[in-house]
Design a protein around this nucleic acid. Sequence first.
DNA 1: CGATGGCGATAGGCTTTAACTATACATGGG
DNA 2: CCCATGTATAGTTAAAGCCTATCGCCATCG
Lengths: 312, 312
Amino acid sequence: MTLTDLRYLVALARERHFGHAAERCNVSQPTLSVAIKKLEEELAVTLFERSAADVKITDIGARIVAQAEKVLLEAGQIKEIATAGRDPLSGPLKLGVIYTIGPYLLPHLIPRVHAAAPSMPLLIQENYTARLAEALKRGDLDVIVVALPFEEPGIVTQAVYDEPFRVLLPAGHGWESEERIPASRLAEAPLLLLGAGNCFRDQVLEACPLCRSGEGLQRTLEGSSLETIRHMVATGAGITVLPSAAADPLPGGNSLLTVRPFTTPEPFRRVALAWRVTYPRSGAIDVIRAAILDSPLQGVKPVGRGSPLPVG
Amino acid sequence: MTLTDLRYLVALARERHFGHAAERCNVSQPTLSVAIKKLEEELAVTLFERSAADVKITDIGARIVAQAEKVLLEAGQIKEIATAGRDPLSGPLKLGVIYTIGPYLLPHLIPRVHAAAPSMPLLIQENYTARLAEALKRGDLDVIVVALPFEEPGIVTQAVYDEPFRVLLPAGHGWESEERIPASRLAEAPLLLLGAGNCFRDQVLEACPLCRSGEGLQRTLEGSSLETIRHMVATGAGITVLPSAAADPLPGGNSLLTVRPFTTPEPFRRVALAWRVTYPRSGAIDVIRAAILDSPLQGVKPVGRGSPLPVG
DNA sequence: CGATGGCGATAGGCTTTAACTATACATGGG
DNA sequence: CCCATGTATAGTTAAAGCCTATCGCCATCG
């Protein structure tokens, strides 16, 4: 029993004439004749009473035809679903973002994605890089926004932008007079850091080798966030380093904080999109990338696909 | 897209492993692999993300699998329906009976058929032979009970029983003294007859050539029934001829009527079943025949299939 | 009553396809 | 860097699906 057989069956039930039904199915009369006969043998029931005068459907045949119509209808739905789902911009996209990007990117990203792809709702998760990577590989996420380097088997990445780091000082801090701060001086101050698991923490420590070797005055705030640290800096608990998108918007009406760039070469992070090589909705990823680049993230510099990652 | 493809699809969605899914479908891994690939091409969507690690279903794939399961379920119903309907004794049987048999046969027939085939309800229509024949050919009826001769293209008949005719006299009628009445004498009395269309009327006239030639005193009662005529005989309006099944049960407590057989050769009618040659539920017909023969119809003689129809 | 025409069944042959085995290729892990 | 695992591809064979041609049945009509 095939779907073709069922199509022949309902055609014959409608036409009550082998020739006409065959024509409607674009096959020859013997084809339809044989198919119906085989179907009757397979089901071991007589579906039609044939006579010279006309073709009558049996009671059991009528019931089976009704069911066959249901099957064909449902089968047709498959094509419908496929057609509707063919658009990569249709259907929800599961997006992961690291904690140190989410709060600054998402408010801009979400409306832009919605404008570009109205039928692609975003299901967003913020988490550590490692957790996002797991979820991505499991299939719980489709695309993630992380900082490079990010290497995982089966995962491809695409750099989107470089984001310089800034020094955040409490107002009135001694370094306020400096136009730019050398990264090496971070070891001199009480540096407030995010907890382990945040890649941004590692990148800050990488920018300041002395801090990393434990010679600095840094203090780790487990389970905290950049926003919390910012408030702590404002109260004079220490200084910190923020990515530009988090730091640059600040001084606006906030007289308790001062932002200073680093001296060149500025430490920075390269932010990238990552997805499974096998992920089929590349169009959706393009939309995400475009929306990120369209977002007003202060201080960031777009990165072409070919740009090499300079030594951090 | 075939039902087989959908089975492969569902199996793969369950197993998330081409090899295992193929095994479950009793086919080789390449077979399933190719089938899925073709399905994806046909639908122009990616249903699964394949990687060395594992097989992940896409969102659109999951929706299509759900629909495919629905299709397979409905398709399975077809086999169920066929299996359930394979029994010829299952499902209603549309039975037609001529007016001059119905009232005497049906009260016996119905319970017997119900006992023999509880899941074969009878849908009964009483009518003239011509109307029954039409309905039978149209397919509105499946089997009819008529009197022979009955010849229609595409229709086969099977004699069931012979039923002799009786003379019905009002009590006190002069012929009461006679043991048996010769058919020729019917022309001497006011003979009450059914209207045209009733085959029984014709058969009575055939038994009495003088009546037929219009030399008798017969009176036709259009739109009437044997029961009505019987009451009229009781009131002394005339005499009539009844089939034995209608006549023989009468004298019991009815002192107003007298029944007399004819002299040999007794006029009689041969009652038969008729159905379309193409009608597939021969088992149902056998049940009807058996139930008729089991019914206590007074005076009737069962007829073997081979019995020739004697000249009426 | 035999000829005719419509219609479904059957036969024979061709093309497509669905299946198998064997093997190549890709990937993550030791 | 090679191996184990798992999927894709190639090549072959058997079956299926379809077509054309034709048969056989029945009903109608001259």
